[in-house]
Amino acid sequence: MSTNQSYGDDILQDAQSGWKPLVLTVSSAAQKSSWQDAIHRVLKPHFVCRGFPYKNLGGRLWRPNIIIDLRCCLAAFALIVSSFLVEWPLYVVTATLAVAAAALGVQLARRYRAACANVMAVWMTDQGDVQPHIVANGFGSYLVGAALSDPRGVKVRNTIMRSAPLPRQYPWLQILRRARDINVRSEIVRANLLTRLFRLLPLFCEDMGDAGSHGFNHGDAVHTAGSDGYCEQCRLKAFAPIHNVTLDLIDGRESEARLYIQGYWLPFLWNIPIYEYQILLGHGQRILELLRAGRFSEADEAAGAVLDREFDWTDERPLRQWIKTMVNNYLGFGGQMALADDVVHFVSDRFLPNIAIAHEESLKSDEQNEKVIQSLNPHLAMARLVETAVRQQWTRR
């Protein structure tokens, strides 16, 4: 099985041009812009990041209005209180009016959510011809999901939804007919009081639900995976583009959030299985330690074991063969095939340690080197090494 899509095919040319894919971030209605800013700091070296401006909703985003119109809710509450202060005939009248006010509040809230979803769909389609990746949380996940079901056919690529207040029976099959490139990681957060309240949403809102705390219902398009993205069903059966992933609440210190984004979200957005990326990074860190300790033979042995390993994102080829193929493709464009053997050797020796060095650079609290951090992406790490090797070989000649 291969989950590697077209994103990696032209990464070498993208590295030369400085082009970056687009990521749209949509926070929850309850979160401040600092949530998007923190995510952008981690994603910015690798992507063009644009956060959804909630001001586009007219500055009238009252969180209670998402579920029930606050004015109608207050009116219903006042009528209920009044019903206990009047005689029997008026009690029936006030109680009926209270129910009517609550029902009206629910309908107005649904119209409000539909208007918000329409603003989201327009904003997403205004991003140009590039299909963006998506990172959304809470009500932001609802807006993204509603926009995806819009008949205008909003198209995105890899999409991360955290605590999505959407129905478990979401029409993913209909969405997939229009957006065939989509790949969704639905993160289920159960350690959050708000997500536990999601189970009450279907009582008031037919278009909302508790998928954010229980996951989308299983089917041909939906599987359950571990937090590292490993899915046994995908290996035994057909690949599913939607995966429920259960994890603990990740709203702690910024350093912990940064590690999570780098270790889980970045590989997913790059179309690299998370568990395979963690293997690369772990071995790269070990090899770098051995090199710094002067234990070169052990480092060569450790690197050889990884280079001979097959990965899904390398189209089930040994990593060594993938590097050779990509180097040949790169040099073939420039008519430099005479350098192939030397470049392959140069890249193979430095590929894994460079990813580990990029990881170290990304953890610095002070000024960071963005170009070094970009080598966290294995495709880009190889592209940079090829460019360096070609320059050195031409200099020697």
Rank of each mutant, 00 (worst) to 15 (best):
W88H: 08
A146E: 11
W313Y: 13
N4R: 13
L173H: 02
D37R: 12
Q285I: 14
Q5G: 12
Q16M: 09
S33F: 06
A38L: 11
I160W: 11
R286Y: 09
H214D: 12
P318Y: 10
L61A: 11
I373N: 00
H46A: 08
R50T: 07
V184N: 00
T25P: 01
L79N: 05
G59E: 08
L90R: 00
L176R: 01
R180H: 07
G284W: 10
L200M: 14
P171I: 04
I272P: 09
Q13S: 12
I175Q: 01
N65W: 14
S365V: 11
R317P: 03
L197Y: 07
G282Y: 10
V93D: 07
N217Y: 12
R196Q: 13
G282Q: 13
S141K: 14
I160N: 04
D300R: 14
Q5I: 00
R391C: 07
F239G: 01
R253T: 15
V23T: 06
Q16L: 15
T314N: 07
D9L: 14
E370M: 13
G215E: 08
N369R: 12
L85K: 11
N377D: 15
A103P: 00
A221K: 01
E289Q: 14
L203S: 09
V156H: 06
E360K: 15
L43Q: 03
R180S: 10
H40G: 07
A240M: 03
D342H: 08
E387T: 12
I39C: 07
A76T: 02
L203C: 14
F139R: 02
I39A: 06
A356D: 13
H379G: 10
L266M: 13
V347I: 06
F311M: 06
A30M: 11
A179Q: 03
R177T: 00
R199K: 15
G128E: 04
R60Y: 11
A240T: 04
M208N: 01
V156D: 02
F239A: 13
I323Q: 01
G209H: 08
I80Q: 06
E310I: 13
D129F: 04
H243D: 11
D251L: 10
R253H: 12
P132D: 03
S163Q: 10
Y260G: 00
G59N: 05
N192P: 05
G138V: 01
V92W: 09
G304A: 08
P273V: 07
D308Q: 15
I242H: 00
L385N: 06
R258Q: 13
G263S: 11
Y142C: 04
L259Q: 14
I175N: 01
P151K: 03
F52A: 08
Y277W: 14
I261Q: 10
F311E: 04
L74D: 07
S227W: 02
F52T: 02
F296Y: 09
